[in-house]
Write a protein that binds this DNA or RNA. Structure first.
Lengths: 147, 147
DNA sequence: CGAAAGTACTTGACGTGTCAACTATTGACT
DNA sequence: AGTCAATAGTTGACACGTCAAGTACTTTCG
């Protein structure tokens, strides 16, 4: 509406691109996960985070970091995932304030199935669209932005 | 926990990087916008979208695209922004089903102030962290992923 | 023209996250 | 040891988005 206004500044679009790419990929990967495994991508991320930890267990506090939720949000998320039978709370032997969260047998199974779908999605929607060397380049650039 | 499991696949991390970069930047830009202008980044995005359209007005339906919300979500979002005095609904002369959304005077002012903050944030958290040519490269790669 | 299908938006019921206050436990300092 | 600040997690009240049904208007087509 006003060509001389600051709102036309082209710098704004770089962040816009990041938002677009993120939103579009997230949408597709989430849809596929829901469709084929019946699991929200968020839940898959939590299962993966726990499943990848060497002790097979993570304290609630660390899930707040991983999810970027508040502690209250994680309490409720774990409540639901526990009710669904994917995870379980376990007491921490050295600090009774801490709640560990570990995978149930069902949780492990669905994490395995989810991972197949997730990897296929990433292959299809990300890796296959980039040329040789571009994957490493993108990874490097995104790393610089996040740290 | 199990080195032979599919969950260790390194391909998973590329999407993880995108999530990290997006979450980290979004957080910082949103904090700054809230702090300095008292505006959620989401609202800023809507004001910008409307402010950049040549007619100075956008139909609700287009805001659903821009925000990736459902139509009901946009109705409520615009309700709140209208109550805050930043936008106003205007009837569409050619189709009485359509609601146009336009900026109020206050909305224009805050969009202007928000843009200064937003551009400064992008400069600081994105452009300044990348080397020469890397901005164009990142933009190109993100574009490929989103389309 | 008039009925039926389509489109734009709104609304009620509900799911899921935040915020701030609270409980329980631990660590630090005298 | 004994108090007091810090930390981990939960909870009630609330904010904000989705989903599906509803209203109003428009377009299509026999």
């Amino acid at each position: 509406m006003d060509e001389t206004s600051i709102i036309g500044d082209p710098r704004i679009t770089l962040f816009g691109r990041l938002v677009e790419a993120y939103a579009s990929l997230r949408q597709q990967l989430d849809d596929e996960m829901q469709q084929e495994v019946g699991l929200p991508l968020l839940w898959y991320g939590v299962l993966l985070h726990i499943g990848r930890s060497p002790e097979g267990v993570r304290p609630m506090s660390e899930l707040t970091e991983a999810t970027a939720f508040t502690s209250g949000g994680v309490t409720r998320l774990v409540d639901r995932m526990e009710a669904a039978g994917y995870v379980e709370r376990r007491p921490c032997p050295t600090d009774r304030r801490v709640q560990y969260v570990g995978l149930t047998e069902t949780g492990r199974e669905i994490l395995e199935r989810g991972s197949e779908v997730h990897i296929r999605g990433i292959q299809e929607h990300m890796l296959d669209r980039l040329g040789p060397g571009e994957v490493e380049e993108l990874d490097r650039l995104l790393y610089k932005l996040a740290h």
